[in-house]
């Protein structure tokens, strides 16, 4: 069964069409990168996959089910990390939130163990009892990744998980994503993601152009130049 299947997807906010005829699918445990210009519709696409938004037309299936039906198995790392920082809440509290689900109100021993484990994997266990406010932007981003992973999702959706992170941290996070044994969909502004072992790439700017991995050779790929693409791709890769 496909991890993700998007067919004839259209979306509009009020009168503005933001996504037009998007079609692609992704196999289980594969890694997909989504790139595209600001306002291209990347975050919108992720929100559709998460079931926050409903398609105007077309359909989205995740492991054969609708996003709403399967939300528990999706992990999500949002684009913006500056939530209400003044709240007295610790890193550990936030990570544990990933263990909440319908009908579950209290955390048990297993939840705490899982949270500890993820904190270790992301190398932020020493911040466990810190107030979230007292972390740097990059550290906060890792906390949100931990919150997404702690639910042991089958598919994880990340919206620019490395945007606030320094080069060393970016490498760490991309290494981690690369080695995760689940389905991954990662939006990034950073073209370096394409140098990773991505299985599929979507360029999204209202329409989508899909490229199948494993090795991508941008300069020679005429395909990418056919629709409005990111400026630097036009300049550097297509010679337009």
């Amino acid at each position: 069964m496909k991890a993700l299947e998007i067919k004839n997807l259209y979306f509009r906010y009020d009168k503005e069409t933001v996504l037009e005829n998007i079609n692609f699918s992704l196999e289980d445990k594969k890694f997909m990168a989504i790139i595209g210009p600001n306002g291209g519709g990347k975050t919108t696409l992720l929100k559709l996959i998460l079931g926050f938004l409903k398609p105007y037309k077309g359909e989205i299936k995740i492991y054969g089910k609708s996003p709403q039906e399967i939300s528990e198995l999706i992990g999500y790392v949002p684009q913006h990390t500056n939530f209400s920082l003044d709240i007295p809440i610790t890193v550990f509290d936030i990570v544990l939130q990933g263990r909440l689900k319908k009908g579950k109100f209290f955390y048990d021993k297993l939840d705490r163990e899982k949270a500890e484990e993820v904190l270790k994997t992301l190398k932020i266990e020493k911040f466990k009892n810190r107030k979230i406010k007292d972390l740097s932007g990059g550290q906060r981003q890792k906390v949100l990744i931990a919150r997404a992973l702690v639910s042991e999702p089958k598919i994880i959706v990340m919206d620019e998980p490395t945007s606030a992170i320094d080069p060393t941290g970016q490498k760490e996070i991309l290494d981690l994503i690369e080695n995760l044994d689940i389905t991954r969909i990662v939006v990034s502004h950073d073209i370096k993601i394409l140098l990773r072992k991505v299985d599929k790439i979507a360029f999204i700017n209202k329409k989508a152009v899909i490229h199948e991995g494993p090795k991508l050779n941008i300069p020679n790929d005429k395909h990418f130049c056919e629709i409005e693409l990111i400026e630097f791709l036009k300049d550097e890769s297509c010679g337009i």
């Binding site: 998460l50 079931g51 926050f52 939300s71 528990e72 999706i74 992990g75 999500y76 949002p78 939530f83 209400s84 709240i87 809440i89 509290d93 936030i94 544990l96 939130q97 990933g98 909440l100 689900k101 319908k102 109100f105 209290f106 955390y107 979230i132 919150r147 639910s151």
Partner: peptide, 22 residues
């Protein structure tokens, strides 16, 4: 007592509750 964890999650990031099916 019952909703402490949910209220805290709501206050921090209400959208995330939706991801968790709440």
């Amino acid at each position: 007592i019952i909703l402490y964890n949910r209220f805290l999650a709501m206050s921090y990031d209400i959208d995330f509750l939706k991801v968790r099916g709440i």
